[in-house]
Simulated scan of single mutants.
Amino acid sequence: MNTMTTAAGLKIDWTQMPTYNTVMALAGGAGLLLVVALGWYLVKGKPVVPEAWALAYGALGFVLLVTGTHMTLTWPLAGQGFPFDNIIFGEPCLIFGVLLSAAAMLLWKRGAALAEAGTGEDRLLAVSRLAAPISVFVFGAGLACLGIAAAGWKYTLFAAPEEEPISGEFADHPWVEASFMSSLYVLLGVGALLFPLALRRRAGWSLAAVGVCWTLAGLAFLAFGGLNYFTHIGLIVNTM
């Protein structure tokens, strides 16, 4: 990142600092909540309109796939500033975007059969058989999220400069935002690690734990992404 500190404070060359983890957080949070919501519909045997879920997953998957791919393959995205952002934000969004897009295609083509599967147990059995192979990748993504969380705590990543509104109030205490964001990645990771077990048992504590972890993380990412539209705009204005 081409930055300089002057008497007026931090200055950033924003032509060398693309920033769009705002929409990533927004789409990621919404995607997590919709994954849990569809799971709840299936468990409870509620009526499902597959095309509606396919559209939602497809739209969110497209956003995450495009932004995640660009951030992952453009090394480093932010010039000489934060190359670890490619790993922290780009790669998880790419993974989630691929998974949501695959789910969207499946629901569009085979969703009717799933909706007509009968009881909630029949639906869960059908979903578990379809998702069992990809659950290995989800489990690996969970390990990656725990690795990101550990790095966030060890190196106090995620800390905002004092020029950023709201988040910048904790600039002198970088462990605050590092702990908050790392905790979200722990929730993502724990849910992903339990996902294969939840598919196998299709009931009990593992299924509930995945739902709780991803719901809490989804709500936090959705709210944090929305908030960042103000804080990031403020950071840009304050450092131009």
Rank of each mutant, 00 (worst) to 15 (best):
L157C: 04
A113I: 00
V23E: 06
T15I: 07
T215P: 04
C145P: 01
G226D: 03
P92A: 11
H173I: 12
A171F: 10
P196C: 09
A37W: 01
A223K: 06
S179V: 01
I236C: 03
W214N: 03
I12S: 01
V36S: 04
C213E: 09
R202T: 05
A144H: 12
F139Q: 13
G97Q: 05
R129N: 14
A209V: 09
L114I: 04
R202A: 07
P76H: 01
G28H: 00
W153E: 08
F180Q: 05
F62E: 07
T231G: 06
Y57I: 08
G39L: 01
L38I: 15
L106C: 08
G140V: 06
W75Y: 12
F221I: 00
A223N: 02
M240C: 00
D85E: 10
Y229D: 00
D172K: 14
L219D: 00
I148A: 07
K154L: 13
F89D: 03
L216G: 06
A27G: 06
E169I: 06
K109I: 09
P18T: 14
L34H: 02
E169V: 12
T19C: 05
V43D: 15
V212Q: 14
T5N: 14
W53Y: 07
E164R: 15
I87F: 13
F158D: 00
P133S: 13
P76Q: 02
L194P: 12
F96C: 11
A208L: 15
M4V: 06
T5Q: 15
G79C: 09
N228H: 08
L77Y: 13
G147V: 09
G204K: 05
G168I: 04
P165E: 03
A126F: 09
A220E: 01
T67R: 03
F84H: 09
W53M: 03
V210S: 13
E116P: 05
A159L: 07
G45K: 14
V63S: 05
G61L: 12
H232W: 14
T3C: 14
A103M: 15
G225A: 00
A178E: 01
N228L: 05
F224V: 04
Y155K: 05
I87D: 11
T231M: 09
F170Y: 13
F82E: 09
A115S: 14
V176R: 01
I236T: 04
F84Y: 14
P161V: 06
V127I: 14
G152K: 01
H70S: 07
E116Q: 08
L32D: 11
L10G: 08
T231Q: 13
L60Q: 06
T67Q: 07
F221R: 00
Y185M: 12
V176Y: 05
L106I: 04
T69G: 06
N2V: 10
G234N: 06
G118L: 10
E91L: 09
T19S: 14
Y229K: 10
L125D: 10
K46C: 10
A117F: 03
L143Q: 02
P76F: 01
L194Q: 13
A150K: 11
A52P: 09
A54W: 00
A59V: 14
T119Q: 08
G31H: 01
L219R: 01
L114K: 03
R110S: 08
A141P: 02
A37V: 03
L34E: 07
G58W: 02
A203R: 12
W205T: 10
F84D: 14
Y57D: 15
A25W: 11
W14M: 05
L188Q: 00
L227H: 04
S128C: 11
